[in-house]
Amino acid sequence: MNKISFYFILFFSISLFAGEDQTINLIVENCKSCHNLNIETTKKIPSINNLDKDEFVRLMKKYKNDNDNSVMNRISRVLSNRDILKMADKIYDKK
């Protein structure tokens, strides 16, 4: 990733996603494209259902900061820590 892209992502990560709850809802809806949150339909992608809230937050921060360019690293590095906490609230508080 070049320097401009890095600062572009950094800018948006702190200014755009940390907003409304409805936006967080939509982010979580997009997570469901790969991680079905109700029924485990595949074993090929790690299940979010089997995690507890704290573990989810820990893993998301790890993905975000690992910089290994995995799919989850690329998806999560745009998210702020606040986004991740709000996502955890959304996913786990209803259970």
């Binding site: 494209s33 790969c34 079905n36 595949t42 992608i45």
Partner: peptide, 10 residues
């Protein structure tokens, strides 16, 4: 394959 399975199941 996992993404595909999740999507078509969903």
């Amino acid at each position: 394959f996992g993404w595909y399975e999740t999507m078509v199941n969903d």
